[in-house]
Simulated assay, not measured.
Amino acid sequence: MIKVGDTIPDVTVTAATAGGPEQTTTNAIFAGKTVVLFAVPGAFTPTCSARHLPGFVENAQAFFDKGVDTIACIAVNDAFVMGAWGKDQGVEGKVVMLADGSGDFAKAVGLELDLVARGMGVRSQRYALIAKNGVVTHLGVEEGGAFEASKAETVLAAL
């Protein structure tokens, strides 16, 4: 599992943009920037939609005021789902929606979550991290269905 002091692995992901899906790399997202990345098990799922993503949308300006260049949400979903979820949640100008369609990023950081028995396949664990120029400076991984270490307020306090 990735830890504080590690460099974010370079993986191709897809950004859900107003113009449609755009492939990018994590190197392009993190290089030379302070980035808050939070991961959710799935778009439109209960905790993710009711509490996780909304917390980052509501607190976006506070993150930017503390020097964060980019707030990004990543999930093992396709870019069309991430785009629809972002539109539904009003993320424009606040949170970049990233699709990790095959779970390559989740696997690369060692934070995949096996939900096969629940019919959801392999997803990402719920976590949040802060990275400066691609190096992790803070990591909060949720344990056993909790929602504390990765919520916006906790991450904001870590800046």
Rank of each mutant, 00 (worst) to 15 (best):
V135P: 13
V91R: 01
M97F: 02
I29P: 02
D114L: 07
E112K: 03
I2K: 09
A28H: 06
C48V: 05
A62W: 03
Q61F: 09
G19D: 14
T17I: 01
L159S: 09
Q23I: 00
R123C: 13
I2M: 15
G110W: 08
A15P: 00
A79Q: 06
A152M: 02
P46M: 11
G134E: 14
T47A: 15
G90Y: 03
V96W: 08
V135H: 11
F44A: 12
M97I: 01
V13M: 08
A15M: 14
D114N: 15
A106C: 11
L37N: 06
F30T: 06
T70L: 12
D10C: 04
T14F: 08
E143P: 07
T25V: 11
D10E: 12
A31Q: 14
G119H: 10
F56Q: 08
N27T: 15
E92Q: 14
S49R: 07
G93H: 12
V13L: 15
V141H: 13
V155G: 10
F38Y: 15
V13W: 00
D78F: 10
Q89C: 04
V36L: 10
L156V: 07
F56I: 02
L139W: 11
V91C: 09
V81G: 03
G134W: 08
L113I: 01
A128T: 01
G145D: 14
L129M: 15
I130G: 07
P9C: 10
M82T: 06
D69F: 00
I29T: 13
E58M: 08
A72D: 09
G83N: 06
I2W: 03
E22W: 00
A131G: 06
L156A: 08
T154V: 13
I8T: 05
A28G: 06
N77L: 10
P9L: 04
N133A: 14
A18E: 14
G144T: 02
G145Y: 09
A152V: 01
D100N: 05
D6H: 03
T34L: 12
A62E: 13
C73Q: 02
G144A: 15
A128C: 09
Q23Y: 00
G93T: 04
P9Y: 07
A50V: 05
D100Y: 01
S102P: 04
A149W: 05
G144I: 00
A75S: 15
F64N: 03
A158F: 08
P46R: 06
V36C: 14
S49T: 08
W85V: 00
V68I: 07
T137R: 11
G103C: 06
Q89E: 11
V13T: 03
E148W: 06
V11M: 10
V95D: 02
C73V: 01
W85R: 02
D100R: 03
G55P: 11
M1I: 13
V11W: 08
D88V: 01
L53Q: 09
K151C: 15
D65Y: 09
S150I: 08
V76P: 08
A99H: 02
G67D: 01
F80L: 14
C73I: 01
F105R: 02
A39P: 04
D65E: 15
